[in-house]
Design a protein around this nucleic acid. Structure first.
Lengths: 348, 348
DNA sequence: TCCCGTGTAGAAAGCGCTTGCTATCTGATG
DNA sequence: CATCAGATAGCAAGCGCTTTCTACACGGGA
């Protein structure tokens, strides 16, 4: 039924070994033989059996990419960049690799399960994106898994995620703290003193780092911090909407709202508008990430641009062994403050 | 070095066959034995070798999802829904499957290459999303590939893509034509007569269908169609921006702009605003898809909502054989007109 | 002329798992 | 008490490919 290597070999009148060598091209084969084999492959419409070859060679050409939410452009952009580099079809030379994008939904268990699945497939590399959950047992479990993967020869790269101690994983971290600090600093510089903060889900490194940056900026300016001005939510628009109403309820005199990310900021804008408040005249709004739609918001969003595509591309290259890992295996990627229309001098 | 089935068998004092059966759970194994095996698996931290088992069983637990652009929420949302259904970790019972999201970038060659790669992996199912390219040779090549995949036992589902004739592929098509017609009809109903149309890339079914719907609406209302009022571009914001400037240059008296999709519409809004035109007072704008950010645009976007998540979920279920394919293997999914702030009565 | 290095090709031993078939043991049946 | 169906477990033959080791040819140097 299905064509196998042996069929091709028979047709080309060579041994299976030779066909394999032609296909893998890492062993000298006379030009005439090679051509004969290639012709047979073509005539029989032969397609290599991936599992069989992975089994025999003890390696596969799968590369795993773990994301929290594939429907979120934040991850989509990184995944896209990573994938472009791992050399799927259309990529540079080298064996074609299949990118396996896994949607963890932010759940630690699923993250672990996917890692196991990838380990089971003997993935060539794994790139984990997005913040990690700050749960000690889980962090330990992930670290153990990463160690095991590394032992099995899988290259592990963290992209936009804090380093995993005691692990061979290379980490490209986003400087969330620094970015957040610059952002809030900008708002304070404009004269804001009563700032609401819509944080992401608790227990996530990204959430904590951004919040820390925010607080550091407040502290640096001697602005007293009121815990009631911080609300936690999810990283989506809906959450921004709800949180904003809540913040407004708690303190209607807020002059600025800093959101965990751009989607949240958009939800905040909607809530403010519905509440009859103008942006930025009544309340300034700031996001984080600078996703493509942020510039189209009205007013366009003041935010921190994260070089998602660049970081992803670099992570992809490192995962493929095409670029040297940063010294110490850790690099911090800075964001850039983008001041736009949604932030202005406070009223009064 | 690595733990194998045999090691587990030795430890549990049973044969490899028994271990395999416990792990696959499709053969009676005494409870006590099963427990002993499971304990051994746990103690040895055993992870099944995917390729080996795929080879032996002649099937794999990989499911391919082809998308045009993973960074685009349009595809991200569908991919996410599909993946949730194919039962990755956290999904319903059944073997855990790994979703392989492949980014074709809209390129026919890459599409074909990915299909081959999936065929090589003996994928359990493949879901192709997004419009197809209208190139006869390519369409034939894809059809041939799909046929071969089906022959090899891979289930093939098209989601948001026109049916592939002479193929066993199940198709869930979006009614782009009907949606576009309703959308333009809405604008005409408001009184618009000079409508610009920003189409997607030529040679794509989605582009053509939406354009046909638009023209059908114009024809139905007896509005003469001026070819100069249609511009082709890509499905992104930038393209919408450029195309709008071009349309405005060609005919400054336009009162409405219909975009190929929401991203394009947002770009159009930006361009209009930069040109000093108000939306919708001076020019109405309409998009397509109703992506999450569209409701947050200012004014919020009039568009056609496509049930991306629902269609994806259904495609996923069909791919897993958990839902009956529609009669004839083809179903048309309708969009819903969402009238919002970006469309209004024309000036003058 | 003989020997050996070089360039190619083949033989064959697995890689780790699944599964059809067979073997064994149990309690129930006649 | 012999027989047998039913429930479990093991044997062993692959699945299709890679790769080590070996074999063979050929041409040049001694």
């Amino acid at each position: 039924m299905t064509v196998t290597l042996a069929d091709v070999a028979a047709r080309a009148q060579v041994s299976p070994a030779t066909v394999s060598r032609v296909l893998n091209g890492n062993y000298p084969v006379a030009a005439s033989t090679r051509e004969r084999v290639l012709r047979a492959v073509d005539e029989l419409d032969y397609v290599l059996n991936g599992p069989a070859s992975a089994l025999a060679a003890a390696t596969s050409d799968l590369v795993g990419i773990l994301v929290n939410d594939i429907a979120d452009p934040f991850f989509g952009i990184m995944a896209s960049a990573i994938q472009a580099e791992i050399g799927g079809p259309g990529g540079r030379a080298g064996g074609e690799r299949l990118a396996v994008v896994c949607n963890t939904g932010g759940s630690p268990e699923r993250e672990l399960t996917y890692l196991t699945l990838l380990q089971r497939q003997r993935a060539a590399a794994v790139v984990l994106t997005g913040g990690a959950v700050e749960d000690a047992p889980h962090a330990a479990a992930v670290a153990a898994k990463l160690r095991k993967l590394a032992d099995a020869g899988t290259r592990v790269v963290l992209c936009g995620r804090p380093p995993a101690p005691d692990t061979e994983a290379v980490a490209l971290t986003f400087d969330n703290r620094g970015g957040a600090r610059a952002l809030t600093g900008h708002l304070i510089g404009l004269g804001h003193r009563r700032l609401g903060y819509i944080a992401g889900p608790e227990e996530r490194t990204t959430t904590r780092h951004r919040l820390e940056g925010h607080r550091a900026a407040l502290a640096a300016a001697g602005v007293e911090e009121d815990p009631r001005r911080t609300v936690h939510g999810r990283y989506d628009r809906r959450s921004g909407h709800e949180a904003t109403l809540e913040l407004l309820r708690r303190d209607p005199s807020l002059t600025a709202i800093v959101a965990a990310n751009d989607s949240v900021a958009l939800g905040a804008c909607a809530a403010l508008r519905e509440s009859g408040l103008r942006i930025p005249e009544d309340v300034s709004v700031a996001g984080f990430d600078d996703l493509p739609f942020s510039i189209d918001a009205v007013p366009s969003l003041t935010t921190v641009r994260l070089p998602l595509a660049e970081a992803g591309a670099r992570a992809g290259r490192i995962a493929m062994g095409r670029e040297e890992p940063p010294p110490g295996g850790i690099a911090s990627v800075r964001g850039e403050l983008m001041v736009r229309g949604s932030s202005g001098v406070p009223r009064e």
